[in-house]
Computed example of a mutant assay.
Amino acid sequence: MCGRFIITDTAEDLAAMFDVEHVGENIPEPSWNVKPTEQIPIVLESVKDGPVVRRLESARWSLVPSFSKQLTSGYPTFNARAEEAAEKASYKSSVASKRALIPAAGYYEWHTAGKTKTPYFVHSDDGLPLAFAGLYSWWRNPALPGDDPTRWVLTATVLTSDAQGGLAEIHDRTPVVLPEEWWDQWLDPHTIGDQGLVDAAVAASRPVAAGLRFYEVAPLAGAANGPELTEPVGRERVVGGSGEPR
């Protein structure tokens, strides 16, 4: 799973990295301790009466399907299981046409042994940001009038798959990290997504996941936020070793 991650790049950096044409408002600042329901930067493509536009937008990290009556959910939606995303009512329409990339400089995972949880930091071997396969949705707040610009809330989730290699020793789930050659295909709003597309994305992510590195870090205090959170306390290991807006 992915319950905490870090994003150290600015909006300007991300726009250049992902060839973004439009940068939205209030893109979150870098953070070393991003938590569910906080705002995160996401990359998406939209088309409405014209050419496709690649955008960088701020989204609430926990997807709220358009049919939901309220913003909060009785179950966690910051992650979505890739193997069933196209069949789940909460994610099906997003798989079809609302897919996103969620940039991350790395993420935290916890290994549980009895009552002890040990945090690890997972990152690329070259220090470059990762691109999680994500889904997004626009949720309309029914309590606000139709002319209120804040009535629409952009929300997003990270797809996860079964962990392999060394990561499986920490946790049985891991984010789907897409290689660059898959970014265009995943984002293309003209491609009608289905479970086959999601499965292909997971398969494409396997070589990327195999090259990730991870090491133990100190426990994360609730409000702590800084680069010191990613300082290692153990040796590094390689995973492959052992009406609606658009």
Score class of each variant (00 low, 15 high):
Asn26Gly: 15
Ser62Gly: 14
Gln39Tyr: 04
Ile40Trp: 08
Glu83Trp: 02
Pro41Trp: 09
Ser93Cys: 02
Glu45Val: 03
Leu56Gly: 10
Pro36Cys: 03
Ser68Lys: 06
Ser58Arg: 11
Val23Ala: 13
Lys92Asp: 00
Val47Met: 05
Gly24Ser: 14
Ser58Leu: 14
Arg81Gln: 14
Gln70Asn: 08
Ser73Tyr: 12
Glu87Lys: 10
Lys98Trp: 03
Val53Ala: 07
Glu25Cys: 09
Gln39Glu: 05
Ser93Ile: 06
Ser62Met: 15
Val47Cys: 03
Pro76Cys: 09
Ser31Leu: 03
Glu57Asp: 13
Asn26Ile: 13
Pro36His: 06
Pro30Lys: 14
Val43Asp: 00
Ala59Asp: 13
Gly24Ile: 10
Val23Ile: 14
Asn33Ala: 08
Val43Gln: 00
Lys35Leu: 09
Pro65Val: 15
Gly50His: 03
Lys35Trp: 11
Pro41Lys: 05
Pro76Phe: 10
Val23Thr: 14
Glu57Tyr: 13
Pro36Arg: 06
Asn33Pro: 08
Ser66Glu: 15
Val53Arg: 07
Leu44Asp: 00
Lys98Asn: 04
Glu45Thr: 00
Asn26Cys: 14
Ala86Glu: 05
Ala59Ile: 12
Ser93Trp: 06
Gly74Leu: 09
Ser46Gly: 11
Ser66Asn: 15
Val23Lys: 10
Thr37Val: 11
Asn26Tyr: 10
Arg55Lys: 12
Val53Pro: 10
Leu71Val: 01
Val53Met: 09
Glu84Ala: 07
Ser73Val: 03
Ser62Glu: 15
Ile27Arg: 11
Lys48Pro: 02
Glu25Ile: 13
Tyr75Lys: 11
Asn79Thr: 10
Glu21Leu: 02
Val53Tyr: 04
Arg55Pro: 00
Pro41Ile: 05
Tyr75Gln: 13
Glu57Ser: 14
Leu56Thr: 10
Ser93Thr: 05
Ala96Tyr: 06
Gly74Ser: 11
Glu87Trp: 08
Val64Pro: 04
Lys48Cys: 10
Ala89Leu: 07
Gln70Thr: 11
Ser62Asn: 15
Val47Arg: 02
Lys48Leu: 09
Pro65Lys: 14
Ser58Met: 13
Ala86Val: 06
Glu25Trp: 14
Ile42Arg: 04
Phe67Gln: 10
Tyr91Ser: 00
Ser66Trp: 15
Glu38Ser: 12
Lys69Leu: 06
Leu56Asn: 12
Gly50Phe: 04
Arg55Ile: 00
Tyr91Thr: 06
Val47Leu: 02
Pro30His: 14
Gly24Asn: 15
Leu63Asn: 09
Ser46Thr: 11
Thr37Gly: 03
Asn79Met: 11
His22Lys: 13
Lys98Met: 07
Leu63His: 11
Thr37Arg: 11
Ala85Asn: 02
Val43Phe: 00
Glu87Gly: 09
Ile42Pro: 03
Tyr75Asn: 06
Gly50Glu: 05
Asp49Gly: 07
Phe67Tyr: 13
Ser90Asp: 04
Ser94Glu: 02
Val34Tyr: 09
Ala96Trp: 04
Phe78Lys: 06
Ile42His: 05
Ser93Gln: 07
Tyr75His: 15
Val95Cys: 01
Val64Phe: 03
Ser73Thr: 10
Val95His: 01
Lys69Ile: 01
Lys92Pro: 01
Ser68Ala: 15
Ala96Met: 07
Val95Trp: 00
Pro65Gln: 14
Ala59Glu: 11
Ala96Lys: 07
Ile40Asp: 03
Glu38Pro: 07
Thr77Glu: 01
